[in-house]
Design a binder for these strands. Structure first.
Lengths: 190, 190
DNA sequence: CTGAAAAAAGGACATTTGTCCCGCTCAAAA
DNA sequence: TTTTGAGCGGGACAAATGTCCTTTTTTCAG
């Protein structure tokens, strides 16, 4: 539920150690904007530390969170493949450290390092694979079951993530989330 | 809304022409099952002709359609990267022709043909990019707007796709879909 | 430490959606 | 040709969710 990619994290750390001059590292504080929907960035980011949310803001003011990500997950890689503004905004849920790989280096690694190439392929495949069951479950089951599922995948979610973010991840209003949480509380007191 | 990938289609046709002994072609009739959730297949498929739906069946009997796909789209590529059963079922909405690339050849092409490698990377990136705005829109706007949007993206959708599939794509019951269609009809008669 | 702003909880009501029906039509199989 | 089943359309009611608003709690900058 908060996604991670240990292999890519290892690769990223190694890259930082071996080629420190070719990449850069940026820190963001809680609520800082890492990427803004529609903007361009000349690098692909890999999360070294912290939790981010990746989300879309709709014209009507609603936001929908695609995924929460932490160590080893990529951000901004879609924009490498199709130039154009970022599809999603990315912002820091906790304080965050990002490794930035300039597009040019990213391209070189993709073309010349088969290991890296495979890591990126798998990372993309993972993102596709993740979304399918998630959205299927979300539309097929009650809000209560969805909340229970979050609890199974990540028991501390209520302590770590703000309620508003949880609601935006589940695609419901904060009011509905609260109602469902209350129902669950009452059920467990029986 | 019915997704396509012209570049990969070209590549696939070329592959079939140049290496006819290394790949195979299978036809499916309407409603035929191309892949079954949880099953394994020793090849990656590329749609040569026809429309398929890619969907997940939930334990409670509900189905959720991930995407409709046609020429040039891949199926079963996720299972190449992470062995294990198919995440989704894939079935034929119209009669369909699939080019099957055995895993071994797929691997060789990925590792040795940079053009192919890039096509697959872009295809995966496309699938990720596609899902984000779709689900954001779906949860952020009314059913009526979602139907209107389908109409903009694919004006014939009501003629080509069964109502049940449209409902499962939008994540609502057939009853709700009908209600919304009626509302839209009445609005346009004003 | 204090005041302002954000986050959280929930009441009241409106709206949307689901569930369970029934009846109709049409196309494929017997 | 007849029959059967799938797909379609919609009525009636129940359940879920949204909207709007108020109150309380927490956080944090000054």
């Amino acid at each position: 539920m908060i996604r991670t990619n240990p292999k890519l994290l290892d690769y990223a750390k190694n890259l930082l150690e071996k080629q420190p001059t070719k990449v850069s590292v940026t820190d963001y504080k809680r609520k800082g904007e890492i990427m803004g929907q529609g903007h361009r960035y000349p690098y692909v980011g890999i999360i070294i530390k912290g939790i981010v949310k990746c989300y879309i803001n709709e014209a009507n003011g609603k936001a929908f969170i695609q995924e929460f990500m932490t160590e080893g997950m990529e951000v901004g890689e879609l924009e490498f493949f199709e130039k154009g503004g970022a599809t999603c905004s990315v912002s820091a849920v906790t304080s965050v450290t990002i490794l930035e790989i300039p597009h040019q280096l990213f391209k070189t690694l993709l073309d010349e390092d088969l290991t890296f190439n495979r890591l990126i392929l798998e990372s993309l495949a993972d993102k596709v694979r993740y979304k399918a069951p998630r959205h299927a479950f979300q539309t097929s089951y009650s809000l209560e079951r969805n909340i229970e599922k979050m609890g199974e995948l990540y028991p501390d979610f209520l302590k770590v993530l703000p309620k508003g973010d949880i609601a935006n991840y589940l695609g419901v209003s904060a009011r509905s989330l609260n109602r469902a949480l209350k129902t669950l509380r009452e059920e467990s007191n029986t």
